[in-house]
């Protein structure tokens, strides 16, 4: 049912660290691998061995360059459903297949009632919904709802597949609604932000900006002070006498 819950008990989401992401795609394929056999099974692939291979994925990683020349920088940018608090992708749905869970704020598509009208994907500013051409229903990040509470998985593994796989630890999972949660603290400390706040969708996922680069201050020549004291003799003689002093300490 597409009326949004007044409030949700939790606001579960991902916190993605753009300062650490190297763009390795582990979160992309682990997501595909888990979910193609999970809640959203299958995530079909079209022309998999042909000229135009494309399929349904719930998470994609872009790479951008920002700025020009020497001062430019590169950033890898994972993009999946942000589990917004007030997303039109839910309210526009004519069937109720698209809904937001009151319990944890996870936005889901019910694959058994979706008619594949695609309207929700139009309403999503973040390109987080992908239509499954084979099955005829809409797919999206489930926040691994079939992992995070799964009693058949050990406690420590009850996190999204992408978080579990990420080799650099650039992905964090938790309750961004609870100011005391680790993720919220991380967001506070690192100046985490929302994507396209102007849309008013209030994402539950947050992004941590690239940290200011260290020592990118214009290079300064080594001050004389830092060079060795200049005593008499050739450069080498001075070096050797220094070495002798050092060793005879």
């Amino acid at each position: 049912m597409t009326s949004l819950p007044q409030t949700t008990e939790k606001k579960l989401g991902l916190v993605i660290d753009l300062d650490t992401c190297v763009g390795c795609q582990a979160c992309v394929t682990s997501c595909k691998e888990w979910n193609t056999g999970g809640y959203s099974a299958p995530l079909s692939d079209q022309d998999p061995y042909g000229a135009d291979p494309h399929g349904t994925w719930l998470n994609r990683v872009h790479a951008y360059e920002i700025g020009e020349g020497a001062r430019s920088q590169a950033v890898h940018f994972p993009r999946s459903c942000l589990h917004c608090e007030e997303p039109d992708c839910v309210t526009v749905c004519p069937t109720g297949a698209s809904y937001k869970r009151a319990e944890d704020g996870i936005v889901l598509v019910n694959p058994d009632t979706c008619i594949g009208c695609k309207l929700c994907s139009w309403a999503c500013p973040y390109g987080a919904r992908e239509y499954d051409y084979e099955v005829g229903v809409m797919r999206k990040c489930t926040l691994c709802v079939d992992r995070i509470y799964n009693e058949n998985l050990p406690e420590e593994d009850r996190v999204p597949a992408c978080v579990r796989a990420c080799p650099t630890g650039a992905r964090h999972f938790g309750d961004t609604g609870d100011p005391e949660s680790d993720v919220s603290k991380l967001v506070a400390e690192r100046g985490g932000y929302d994507l396209m706040p102007e849309m008013g969708y209030k994402p539950q996922n947050k992004y941590l900006p690239p940290r200011p680069r260290q020592n990118m201050k214009p290079a300064a020549p080594v001050e004389e002070a830092q060079r060795a004291p200049t005593t008499a003799g050739s450069a080498l003689e001075r070096l050797f006498s220094w070495a002798d002093q050092q060793l005879s300490r």
Binding site: V61, A63, E65, I66
Partner: peptide, 28 residues
């Protein structure tokens, strides 16, 4: 502002997230 990185300079795509057009690009 889609990436929230505009304040660092002009944002340009460097590597596409996928080789061919996905649903989002075909539709939108």
């Amino acid at each position: 502002n889609a990436t929230g990185l505009g304040h660092l300079g002009k944002v340009r795509p460097f590597e596409a997230a996928h080789a061919r057009r996905n649903f989002v690009m075909r539709e939108m």
